[in-house]
Design a protein around this nucleic acid. Structure first.
Length: 576
RNA sequence: GCACCCAUAGUAAAACGGAUAUUACGUCGGUUUCCGGAACCGAAAGUCCAGGUUCGAUUCCUGGUGGGUGUACCA
């Protein structure tokens, strides 16, 4: 598959630069960049190289641009570039190139022009990571959906990605749950629906301990017994994990999220003491006030922010577990990179953990991929403990119900089974799209109508564009068949093909800064451009090459939308 | 106290130094002899404040203001 338009233009632009009079005066390693034009009136692509160079060369930027253009050989790729404004160089892709890219993308249905990574990495993606014995609430949606999307994109780009659900199965909450299980458990409730019952226990005990110091101690003792290997407590614990996993799996199935591993905190229990010993022996950790800490005197901001890896009572903390987890991922899973899709409040913790890893000489690329908080109406973070949060399962149910209402209205004659399936796709897709289409650091206040919107820049808009591509072929009575002489006759066709060709430019950029919203925005533009094409260019009414060309465009649009939505984790439907 | 994140039309968001700041919801007004109108076309409305760097700043830097979060034995 050929390079993208941007790559080809950049290479030709740099060739041109090397032929100019001032080629010898360019800064060391200067590489001119090509960007997609922000405003189509200026062309398809643009470069600001002339303006950047003008200063160093002490020349007028427009003169620099003119000198570059003088040497620029667009070949069959682009028209003669134009100078505009303060010194932008604007490029327009030729019709010939657009026709040929349409053909070559149709010949490449698996990758749609995207080249696999030259140096594939093994990446462990750590996301979702709910605590067991509690249902997932809306707050878990961001990690789960963003992590899943990044996993899909990285795989598509050719990397090996191992998804690992690092569940919280060994926290202090088990002290309360154990006591609650023994004293407050309603067996029948547990039989019918275990997770809510476990949550009820947890909340009840949590409330009781608020003003009962003695009970707090009793719970602590239960936890110590568990950690000491007490048989009865271990049994209860195992049962809790088992029940919780079943409940969690239901949600993941609906979300179409898959994990290669579920290596929770408890998996690393045996590794904690050895790590502390190792760090002490290496002089990385030291004792302070009875606790074992790692200090970071070399980092000014962390001068008074040590991380504690063993408490003065001998217990370990989540920092210890995270260090053991890094070991396992590097040594056993052979990770070149580890991605943590975790809430922004944990920034400091991961800064510290990563520094410790560095001190230990570990080389893996550790990426903290934070996201903003979902807030309650009071503008404070949602907390499970307080008990007033919205459960994720309820959000998904409501999303599907709302989608169903519209399907009944728009398409009442579909069979019941199909309606249910489509409602699921649209409902879940809408929730995912709402999350992925905004910048991950943005905090937002949870709101049913925003999260479950079905109008505007939402999943149904994109799905409808896909459905339209399929409707054409349904009407035609057969699938797309290659052939004919592809010729473009309308601007709407050219706009759309350019957009489709940019799929291979956009997808890799998602991983530059871990921003699924760039892909979501791109797909929205594809859908908009297709809807405009639809208005301007009848397909089945035409004949010969024009009809064949437009069928090809519909086919390719469908493929890009299906593939792109797939990367977001959103399934497509033929009818809606 | 210190640190991190955020601040964009009435509302919710986008723009990882570029041209006239881009969308959606809502408001107002149009489009259907035509392949799915869950569509298309049009209008009004905006970058927290004060400096700085730059040919060019929503974007980078400094200082404010406002909100969120974290900060030695929870995860």
């Amino acid at each position: 598959m050929a390079k993208t338009f941007a790559d080809q233009l950049a290479s030709r632009l740099n060739d041109a630069l090397s032929k100019t009079d001032f080629a010898g005066e360019l800064p060391e390693g200067f590489n001119a960049q090509i960007d997609q034009a922000q405003n189509r009136q200026f062309g398809d692509y643009q470069s600001n190289a002339a303006m950047i160079l003008a200063k160093q060369l002490r020349k007028n930027p427009r003169e620099v641009a003119a000198a570059i253009i003088e040497q620029f050989d667009g070949g069959t790729l682009s028209e003669k570039p134009e100078i505009a404004g303060p010194g932008f160089i604007n490029f327009r892709i030729t019709q010939e190139s657009l026709e040929s890219v349409l053909q070559s993308l149709l010949n490449d249905p698996d990758q749609l022009g995207l080249e696999k990574a030259a140096e594939p990495k093994t990446i462990v993606a750590d996301f979702s990571a709910p605590n067991v014995a509690k249902p997932m609430h809306v707050g878990h949606i961001r990690s789960t959906i963003i992590g899943d999307c990044l996993t899909r994109v990285a795989k598509f780009a050719g990397h090996t990605v191992i998804s690992d659900n690092h569940i919280g199965d060994w926290g202090t909450q088990f002290g309360m749950i154990l006591w609650g299980w023994k004293n407050l458990l309603d067996e029948t409730a547990l039989e019918t629906d275990p997770i809510p019952e476990l949550l009820r226990i947890y909340r009840d005990v949590n409330a009781k301990t608020k003003d009962d110091e003695a009970l707090k101690e009793v719970c602590k003792a239960e936890l110590v017994k568990l950690q000491g290997g007490d048989e009865e407590n271990l049994k209860i614990w195992e049962r809790c994990i088992e029940l919780s996993k079943i409940g969690l799996q239901k949600i993941y199935d609906r979300l179409d999220v898959k994990f290669d591993y579920w290596l929770g905190e408890s998996f690393y229990n045996d590794q904690l003491a050895p790590i502390v010993d190792e760090l002490l022996a290496a002089g990385i950790a030291e004792e302070s006030d009875g606790a074992i800490c790692v200090f970071f005197p070399e980092v000014e901001k962390l001068a008074d922010k040590p991380t504690i890896i063993r408490k003065s009572d001998g217990g370990f903390l989540y920092a210890t577990t995270d260090l053991a987890t890094i070991d396992y991922r590097i040594n056993e899973l052979k990770a070149d990179a580890i991605w943590y899709v975790v809430g922004a409040p944990q920034q400091l913790h991961f800064d510290q953990i990563f520094l410790v890893s560095e001190k230990r000489g570990q080389k893996a690329e550790l990426e903290f991929i934070p996201f903003g908080s979902i807030l309650g109406k009071d503008r404070k973070m949602l907390r499970t403990r307080s008990g007033d949060t919205v459960q994720l399962a309820d959000v998904l149910d409501e999303a599907v119900v709302r989608a169903r209402v519209i399907i009944d209205e728009k398409n009442p004659d579909l069979p019941e089974e199909e309606k249910a399936e489509i409602a699921e796709i649209i409902g879940i897709g809408s929730v995912k799209y709402a999350e992925l289409s905004q910048y991950r650091m943005t905090d937002y206040i949870f709101d049913w109508d925003t999260m479950l919107a079905l109008k505007g820049n939402t999943a149904p808009y994109l799905l409808n564009a896909y459905v339209r591509t399929r409707a054409i072929f349904r009407k035609l009575g057969k699938d797309f068949e290659p052939g004919g002489n592809l010729t473009l006759t309308a601007d709407a066709e050219k706009d759309l093909i350019l957009k489709l060709a940019q799929f291979a430019e956009v997808v890799p950029s998602v991983l530059n800064d871990f921003r699924p919203n760039t892909l979501a925005a791109y797909l929205y533009e594809v859908a908009t451009t297709y809807h405009k094409f639809w208005e301007a260019c009848p397909v089945l009414k035409e004949e010969g090459d024009i009809r064949q060309t437009r069928l090809a465009i519909c086919e390719l649009t469908g493929q890009v939308l299906r593939c792109g939505l797939g990367l977001l984790g959103i399934r497509t439907t033929e009818k809606m």
